[in-house]
Design a protein around this nucleic acid. Structure first.
Length: 294
DNA sequence: ACAGGATCCTGGGGGC
DNA sequence: TGCCCCCAGGATCCTG
């Protein structure tokens, strides 16, 4: 079993849904930033910009969390790999690895904790500045509104593996290592299949599979293995339903063939060599059937 | 241009 | 018991 789970779209969506009722209307009374650097540097002047502001809305874009304030400023978080963004009571016990605390009215605190500091918190002047930032990152469309034609075109022009494409936030925003593998299983496609070798039918199957898997995971409040907790501190339950992720050597839930683990696009990649053997041209796992697992 | 690899970071786990 | 090394993978930077 993998040791840590990472916030991908379903986990971030769960955090946002938890935070929304707890933050909306709350006023920021004080701000305290930790001394240790995050991925994007926190500027001390932002602390004075935040004091006195009221939270108007909490939104998600890909794996980013956007907190809109009453004067138009936007506080944008990324949870990186171990980030936790929770509302706690102001008498809650101190925690380690806390990098930013907003003291709120009504005896609450918004606490950003991140063990490995791959996450970030950034203040933007207004919504257009956030959109400009996302545009600069070339952040791709949300998976639920992924246009089929655009998606097919993106796949057709790349020699990269489907796994690598799914991890590329410029193509589709929000998918990470876990849900990339789960989506490929759902679509019955080999992770090694290249974009340009993917047929239109397969591409469409994958597009739908991504939405199916992410929706299912959101319903389960995401996956918790170790680090991840929702905005209320509750764990998710989707890890119980992983078809392939973290299941190397265990029988496929569909065909009982042992799940395989390979290294692809620099990441651990799990798949069923039988269910995801690929159909028609361009299978990236040719030869697998001739050399079945012992 | 494009694809893959190294890098940042910390804690947990296995091997010895 | 403790030390060392490996592993996890978000985005970003570098290299071939």
């Amino acid at each position: 079993m993998p040791r840590c789970s990472v916030p991908e779209l379903p986990e971030v969506e769960t955090v946002v849904r938890d935070l929304r009722p707890r933050l909306r209307g709350r006023r920021i009374e004080a701000v305290r930033a930790g001394a240790r650097s995050l991925r994007r540097a926190w500027r001390s002047e932002w602390e004075t910009h935040l004091v006195g502001r009221q939270v108007r809305a909490v939104e998600r874009r890909g794996k980013w969390i956007v907190i809109l304030l009453d004067d138009g400023q936007c506080l944008v978080y990324h949870l990186g790999m171990t980030g936790q963004l929770t509302v706690v009571a102001d008498d809650a016990p101190e925690a380690d690895h806390v990098h930013l605390v907003l003291d709120l009215d009504a005896g609450r605190r918004l606490r950003f904790r991140d063990i490995r500091r791959f996450g970030s918190a950034t203040l933007f002047d207004d919504r257009p500045a956030v959109d400009a930032f996302f545009a600069q990152c070339k952040l791709g469309p949300e998976p639920f509104t992924l246009d089929p034609k655009t998606w097919h075109r993106q796949l057709a022009k790349t020699r990269r593996s489907l796994k690598a494409v799914l991890l590329d936030q410029r193509v589709v925003a929000g998918v990470g290592n876990i849900y990339a593998d789960e989506s490929l299983f759902e679509a019955h496609l080999p992770p090694t299949l290249t974009g340009r070798a993917t047929t239109a039918t397969q591409a469409e199957r994958l597009r739908k599979a991504i939405a199916t898997v992410l929706t299912r995971a959101i319903e389960r409040r995401g996956s918790s293995i170790r680090n991840y907790v929702g905005g209320s501190g509750l764990r998710g339950g989707y890890q119980e339903e992983f078809r392939v992720y973290g299941r190397a050597g265990q029988p496929c839930r569909r065909c009982e063939t042992p799940i395989r683990r390979i290294r692809l696009a620099g990441r651990s990649t799990y798949f069923c060599p039988k269910c995801q053997a690929g159909r028609g041209q361009g299978s990236g796992v040719r030869g697998q059937k001739r050399t079945p697992d012992p």
